[in-house]
């Protein structure tokens, strides 16, 4: 390398581009976070640091609406992520352990299909499906839809984890007179745990964040945080919206970080 006098891998200008990329990705988020602490009625002028908009979110005139929306969002996210994770775990166990190769590829294709199709198409299809079976739109339709679209996100890390576990462990347990059930709960399940945890966390975030599908399948009057925020933003961006956004942003980043360290710690161990 030295004989050429330059490094073949290095291109001038790529580092600034990378920095630009990171700045673009983070600048809007940082700015909204900063402005959520702004002690001003208007969103334009900076008048010093305060927590007044956070107080406003919890006690202000719109607090009832947002509290209800937050309650809906979090209960739906927990139930949907839990159900999707359980289903994905069972599906991964049966497909990867029992299935033939063709079946495995087919199910992978079908599971990843919602990831490839524009979300609005999924939303239309889901709405029409509920409508045609006569399901009244409300909390329950949101929940069912969330369970459905959380499955791919929960399935991916769980299946990836599952593929990394040799079936010799269960074989050994079975040889030592464990029942099939014991082999699953005592051997396989603990080994799959990191995949299950990150699957759950990712599904949780996806559910918490969803706007498009929720907007389609929600009934009148039932709001989740994103749909409530969207409704409010339509009338203009207000400081209390920035405070809510910052809190949601914090939750998402926290979840992803936990998920990252769960999978990372596991690689080391």
């Amino acid at each position: 390398m030295a004989r050429r006098g330059y490094d073949i891998k290095r291109f001038t200008g790529f580092l600034p581009m990378t920095i630009l990329c990171i700045v673009i990705l983070y600048a809007p988020l940082v700015i909204v976070t900063v402005y959520s602490f702004n002690d001003s009625q208007s969103i334009t002028n900076w008048e010093g640091i305060s927590l007044r908009w956070y107080v406003d979110v919890f006690t202000g005139p719109e607090s009832e609406k947002f509290k209800l929306a937050a309650w809906n969002s979090f209960t739906i996210a927990i139930i949907a992520a839990g159900t999707a994770t359980t289903l994905s775990t069972l599906a991964a166990t049966s497909v990867i352990r029992g299935g033939q190769f063709r079946l495995r590829m087919l199910s992978l294709g079908l599971i990843s299909m919602p990831l490839m199709v524009p979300e609005i198409v999924t939303a239309v299809a889901t709405l029409i499906f509920f409508n045609s079976i006569g399901f009244t739109r409300g909390y329950l339709t949101i929940l069912v839809a969330h369970i459905a679209f959380c499955i791919p996100f929960a399935y991916m890390p769980i299946a990836a984890r599952m593929q990394g576990i040799e079936d010799t462990f269960e074989q050994a347990a079975l040889d030592l007179y464990a029942t099939k059930r014991q082999a699953f709960t005592k051997i396989l399940l603990p080994m799959m745990m990191p995949g299950i945890i990150s699957g759950f966390l990712l599904a949780f975030i996806i559910s918490l964040d969803d706007f498009i599908i929720t907007n389609f399948v929600k009934g009148a009057g039932v709001e989740t945080l994103p749909t409530a925020i969207f409704g409010a933003v339509k009338q203009g961006i207000k400081p209390n919206i920035m405070a809510i956004s910052t809190m949601l942003l914090g939750v998402s980043i926290l979840m992803v970080t936990i998920s990252y360290f769960v999978s990372k710690k596991d690689e080391l161990g």
Binding site: L25, P28, L29, P226, I241, M242, S252, M255
Partner: peptide, 22 residues
């Protein structure tokens, strides 16, 4: 890679609103 992925997990609505704000 983690730095690049974090924003993806942040609510798309919030990111779009942030963009508009900026």
């Amino acid at each position: 890679v983690f730095l690049i992925t974090i924003p993806y997990w942040v609510n798309l609505l919030i990111r779009t609103v942030s963009m508009k704000f900026m």
